[in-house]
Every structure is written in structure tokens, then in C-alpha cells.
């Protein structure tokens, strides 16, 4: 995956190589999207492109502006400045025009909650232009793919949170739109269901469907995304493949320490991100090795409940770029 690379200055600690343009034909182009809510800048000159058949992610903590950005992309919100182009057509603030090209899964879909699963999916398919028979067949296939066949006649409001989310996703996937915009589709799902969703997305990517996936789950971002834009306080602070972004901090390792009781007065404390009894440090490899040797050789070892050394994740990239630690979900 080799996109057009440019070096951009970031507002925080450094400069990173950033691929704002996709490696293939452009399916989605956001240009300078800026939105103010009172004095707060919710999205700040957001610019990137998504290629056809790409699984592109928006990663960022709660309140980073992901959902606002997505609602602008699907046309329900008009930005103060900037434009949204889908498959070559300007759809800025025009959800009706955007709906011809995309399917959108919001964070919650209360409009569907009182409908049986099968009817919810089928009626969305028919709204997207499928005949009753085709929508019925597509519903059957989708429910089978997502493991929901036995729940077909049960109303969404009577399902567990995870089952409901899968049913909502099924409604988004019906009728094969060329662009899928999914706002945290795996929120509340168990591991098995999450993998089923990831498989469904990969299948569609292989068919040439473009996917924009909003997540604050680092594991999901690393497993599924071709490229990812990291959002913080309404700004894109990095945009590239997960691999290239992680290479930014590849010389470092993450050292996690969990203390049995009140943490001691240790020199590492001043460099750690402290969350109760848990300390998290990102250190050069040699320094981490020395620190761990020091911690495990003396009396300090008895105070430790657990320790781990790990290679960097996108969360480390996020923190290195100035994001706040513990904002992202690791599971």
C-alpha cells in the first residue's frame, strides 16, 4: 500500500510522513472541512482522500470530532467551510445525494429498534431500491453471514447489545452500496462477533467496496485498516498505513508496570503516565531493558504485581503525536 507521501508539520511534537492521498482512484475526498460550535472548533481544516476499495479508519478518542466529521461526510451536517466529494460528486450538506452512493451506520440506530431483525434489514434494502423479493433474499444471506438467522423475527429492542449492533450492521450492509460509513460498528461486540464483522468488511473490500470505519479501538485499527487518520481535537494529526505510523515509534517499547499497593517513589514515576497503580512508559529499547533489570533485581520486585514489555501500538503513535493517554481502547 503505497500512497502519495508528503511530509507535514504537526501541531504537536514533531513531523511525520503522512499519506493524505490514497493509492488508487479516489472514492471520497474531504477538503478543508471546518466546523465551529460556539467558540469550539469541532473539525479543523480536515483534508484527506479515501481510495476505491480501501478500508480507511478514523481513530481518535471520544470527543475528537469523529462523529461530527462522519455526519458531514454523509451529508446530514453542513460544514462551515470545505467540501465533501463522493465518487466525483459534490455532496456537501446534501444527504439525499450522498445516500445514492453510501450506507451509513450511526453509533446507535434507534429508528430500527422496534422492528424485527429481518424486516429492519429488508425495509432498508427496499428503501435503497431493491425489489421485495431481492431484498428478502439479500436479508437472508446477510443474516446468515453475520450469524443472525435465528434472530430474524425478534425485534431489535429484545436483543442483547452485541446482537443488536450486528443487526444494525446488517441493515447498513444490505443492497451493496459502493461506500460504507460505519461509526464504531464493533462497539459492544464480543471477540467472535467482532471477527465476523471484520471478515464481512474484508469480503466487501475485496469486491471493491470502500469502507470508512470509525473506531477508538487500537486493535481494530491495526487488524482491519489499510490506512488510518488519527484525529485529535478536530484535527488530523496523522494519516498513513498503520505500519508506517507505528514505524514512527519503532525504536521504542512500551513498559507497563502494575504495583501491588501504593506505587513507590521511583525515578521512573516522573516519566510514566500514571493511572492508579498502573504506570505506562514508552522508552528506547535499551533503556527499557535496563529499567526492567533494575526493577526486577532488587527489593522493588516484591512491590510489583505485574509487568509487560510490548512493541508499540497505534496508541503509542497517538501519544507520541500529542494525544492524551488512556483515551483509546486497547481490547
Amino acid at each position: 500500500m503505497g500512497g502519495k507521501a508528503t511530509t507535514v508539520a504537526l501541531p504537536y511534537r514533531g513531523r511525520v510522513t503522512t499519506a493524505l492521498a490514497p493509492p488508487r482512484a479516489t472514492a471520497v475526498a474531504l477538503t478543508g472541512l471546518t466546523t465551529h460550535r460556539g467558540d469550539v472548533c469541532v473539525t479543523d481544516a480536515v483534508t484527506f482522500e479515501i481510495g476505491t476499495g480501501e478500508v480507511f479508519g478514523l481513530l481518535g478518542p471520544n470527543g475528537a470530532g469523529k462523529t461530527t466529521l462522519v455526519r458531514q461526510l454523509v451529508g446530514v451536517l453542513r460544514p462551515d467551510e470545505g467540501s465533501v466529494t463522493l465518487l466525483g460528486r459534490d455532496v456537501t450538506g446534501n444527504s439525499r445525494a450522498a445516500s445514492e452512493h453510501l450506507a451509513y451506520l450511526a453509533q446507535t440506530e434507534p429508528a430500527l429498534h422496534e422492528l424485527p431483525v429481518g424486516l429492519a434489514v429488508e425495509s432498508v434494502g427496499r428503501c435503497r431500491g431493491l425489489s421485495k423479493a431481492t431484498a428478502g433474499a439479500a436479508t437472508t444471506a446477510l443474516l446468515d453471514e453475520l450469524g443472525l438467522t435465528e434472530l430474524r423475527s425478534r425485534p431489535l429492542c429484545r436483543l442483547s447489545g452485541g446482537e443488536r449492533r450486528l443487526a444494525e450492521l446488517a441493515a447498513a450492509l444490505v443492497a451493496d452500496r459502493p461506500l460504507l460509513v460505519l461509526d464504531e460498528p464493533t462497539a459492544g461486540l464480543d471477540v467472535t462477533a467482532r471477527r465476523r464483522v471484520w471478515d464481512a468488511l474484508r469480503t466487501r473490500r475485496d469486491r471493491g467496496v470502500t469502507v470508512l470505519l470509525v473506531t477508538h479501538n487500537v486493535l481494530e485499527a491495526e487488524q482491519v485498516l489499510d490506512r488510518v487518520a488519527v484525529l485529535d481535537r478536530g484535527r488530523v494529526i496523522a494519516c498513513d498505513t498503520p505500519g508506517r505510523l507505528k514505524a514512527l515509534v519503532s525504536d521504542d517499547v512500551r513498559l507497563e508496570l502494575v504495583w501491588r499497593a501504593e506505587p513507590p517513589d521511583h525515578p521512573l514515576r516522573s516519566r510514566a503516565l500514571v493511572d492508579g497503580r498502573r504506570w505506562s512508559l514508552r522508552l528506547p529499547a535499551a533503556e527499557a531493558r535496563d529499567a526492567l533489570a533494575d526493577l526486577t533485581s532488587g527489593a522493588t520486585l516484591a512491590l510489583l504485581d505485574d509487568f509487560t514489555l510490548a512493541t508499540p501500538t497505534l496508541e503509542d503513535v497517538y501519544v507520541a503525536l500529542g494525544g492524551r493517554d488512556n483515551d483509546l481502547e486497547r481490547g
Binding site: R71, V74, G75, V76, S95, R96, A98, S99, E100, L102, A103, Y104, A106, T108, E109, P110, A111, L112, V124, C127, R128, G129
Partner: peptide, 10 residues
């Protein structure tokens, strides 16, 4: 917030 669902259907 259910109106988004209808607004993003054709």
C-alpha cells in the same frame, strides 16, 4: 437521533 437513519436513505 434516529432521523439520521432516514436522512441517509434515498
Amino acid at each position: 437521533g434516529a432521523l439520521d437513519h432516514y436522512a441517509t436513505l434515498p
